[in-house]
Simulated scan of single mutants.
Amino acid sequence: MATLERLRKEMSDLIPEFFRQCRAADENRLAEYNAAVVIQSWFRGSRVRAHLRHLNRMVNVIQKWWRGYLARKYFRNKVKTAYFIMKMNFYNDMAVRIQKMWRGYYVRKYVHNYYALKKYLEGVAIKNSLVRKELEEYATMREKEKLKQDLEKEERRKNYEARKMHYLLSTEQVAGVFNSPYRQYPDEMEFRLQRARPLSHRDLPKKSNDSDGFVDWSDCRHPFSFPTTSLLPPINKKKPQGPFRDVGEVLQQRYKPLEPTLKVATSFTSVEEAREEIKRQEWAKGFQDVMFAPFASFHKNKPYEPLIHTSTEYKRIPYGNQNFRVEEATKWVTKKRASAFG
């Protein structure tokens, strides 16, 4: 019973202490919670930072080993490629040397044989002399033929001139111009006129063997500004009857240039083209009668003030041949002294 009484006395003091401790714990709970959070955050941050440092060291090690592996692999490939190129260059040089020696031997033995080449050159020299001799003979023959042709052509021309000037032949009563009485012998043309047959006016002015193209067009009735063509033979042997125009006039009308009418020469779209050209000219040279208003607040009755340097026209002044704008002080917008601008 004594013990129970003693416990009752202690319990009477313990309950208020319990409540006091509970109130103190409630009051310090927030501070203790914040302190615990700070301690936990610091501890966890330390662990995380240590883990990150460990991971960084491991990553550096892995990258170091991997980059070393790639570099050694690239270096081995480069060495292998350089070695292959060196071997190929060496083999090519050896092949070139072998080909050079073989080709030199083959050419010296079979292609450029000294004695065969000497014999060939001697044959070429002999053949050259023969060809040159034949060419000289051919050139001499050609010159003689050309000289003969020129002489024959000159002879034909003189014969044609003699036929044309047959009216200058001397008669028994009157001596010709080529038979001067003051000369001992007559001129060569006098004997040629005696042998030549007179040129008839009925002979057509065409190229023939006796004239060789030496035709005098001065007294011909046919103009030669158009190509001359040979005339077709008549249907009948007799001369055709009836009014026929001159051959030269017919040919001139046939070969005259084309002169189309205005309807043919004018384009079908000439009206549309003219309208487009007028529109382009109006667009290029058009002007506006409405005064330009630079701002929205521009008053309609307020006149447009021109610039100072564009208010006058270009005029010639006696200071040279250049054109300058004349300054008029009466039209200045600002108040400036006339002496400042001369």
Results as ranks from 00 to 15, higher is better:
residue 164 K to Q: 11
residue 164 K to I: 05
residue 164 K to G: 07
residue 164 K to H: 11
residue 165 M to E: 05
residue 165 M to C: 00
residue 166 H to D: 07
residue 166 H to Y: 11
residue 166 H to R: 08
residue 169 L to Q: 05
residue 169 L to R: 05
residue 171 T to R: 02
residue 171 T to W: 09
residue 171 T to K: 03
residue 171 T to M: 04
residue 171 T to H: 04
residue 172 E to M: 02
residue 172 E to Y: 02
residue 173 Q to V: 06
residue 175 A to T: 12
residue 175 A to M: 08
residue 176 G to T: 10
residue 176 G to I: 07
residue 176 G to H: 06
residue 177 V to K: 02
residue 178 F to E: 00
residue 178 F to H: 08
residue 179 N to S: 03
residue 179 N to T: 07
residue 180 S to A: 07
residue 180 S to G: 00
residue 180 S to I: 03
residue 181 P to F: 02
residue 181 P to R: 04
residue 181 P to Q: 02
residue 182 Y to W: 05
residue 182 Y to M: 01
residue 182 Y to K: 10
residue 182 Y to I: 01
residue 183 R to V: 00
residue 183 R to Y: 03
residue 183 R to E: 06
residue 184 Q to C: 00
residue 185 Y to F: 01
residue 185 Y to K: 02
residue 185 Y to N: 00
residue 185 Y to S: 01
residue 185 Y to D: 00
residue 186 P to M: 01
residue 187 D to L: 05
residue 187 D to K: 05
residue 188 E to D: 11
residue 188 E to P: 02
residue 188 E to M: 04
residue 189 M to H: 01
residue 189 M to N: 01
residue 189 M to F: 09
residue 190 E to I: 01
residue 191 F to V: 01
residue 191 F to Y: 12
residue 192 R to D: 06
residue 192 R to K: 15
residue 192 R to P: 00
residue 192 R to T: 06
residue 192 R to Y: 03
residue 193 L to Q: 05
residue 194 Q to G: 09
residue 194 Q to Y: 14
residue 194 Q to N: 11
residue 195 R to A: 04
residue 195 R to I: 09
residue 196 A to M: 13
residue 196 A to R: 13
residue 196 A to T: 13
residue 196 A to W: 11
residue 197 R to F: 13
residue 197 R to H: 14
residue 198 P to W: 14
residue 198 P to R: 15
residue 199 L to S: 11
residue 199 L to V: 09
residue 200 S to Q: 13
residue 201 H to I: 09
residue 202 R to F: 15
residue 202 R to D: 14
residue 203 D to R: 10
residue 203 D to M: 13
residue 203 D to K: 10
residue 203 D to N: 12
residue 204 L to F: 11
residue 205 P to D: 14
residue 205 P to S: 12
residue 206 K to Q: 14
residue 207 K to F: 11
residue 207 K to D: 15
residue 207 K to A: 15
residue 208 S to D: 13
residue 209 N to L: 09
residue 209 N to Q: 11
residue 209 N to M: 11
residue 210 D to R: 12
residue 210 D to I: 15
residue 211 S to Q: 09
residue 211 S to R: 08
residue 211 S to A: 15
residue 212 D to E: 10
residue 213 G to D: 07
residue 213 G to I: 13
residue 214 F to K: 07
residue 214 F to V: 15
residue 214 F to T: 14
residue 215 V to S: 08
residue 215 V to K: 01
residue 216 D to C: 05
residue 216 D to G: 11
residue 216 D to R: 05
residue 217 W to C: 10
residue 217 W to S: 08
residue 217 W to Y: 13
residue 217 W to H: 12
residue 217 W to E: 10
residue 219 D to R: 05
residue 219 D to H: 08
residue 219 D to L: 06
residue 220 C to Q: 06
residue 221 R to Q: 14
residue 221 R to W: 11
residue 221 R to M: 08
residue 223 P to D: 07
residue 223 P to Y: 03
residue 223 P to K: 04
residue 223 P to E: 06
residue 223 P to M: 05
residue 224 F to L: 12
residue 224 F to W: 14
residue 224 F to E: 12
residue 225 S to F: 12
residue 225 S to C: 12
residue 226 F to S: 02
residue 226 F to K: 02
residue 226 F to L: 03
residue 226 F to P: 03
residue 227 P to I: 12
residue 228 T to H: 15
residue 228 T to Q: 13
residue 228 T to C: 09
residue 229 T to K: 07
residue 229 T to A: 02
residue 229 T to F: 08
residue 229 T to P: 01
residue 229 T to N: 07
residue 229 T to M: 06
residue 230 S to G: 08
residue 230 S to W: 10
residue 232 L to Q: 09
residue 232 L to A: 04
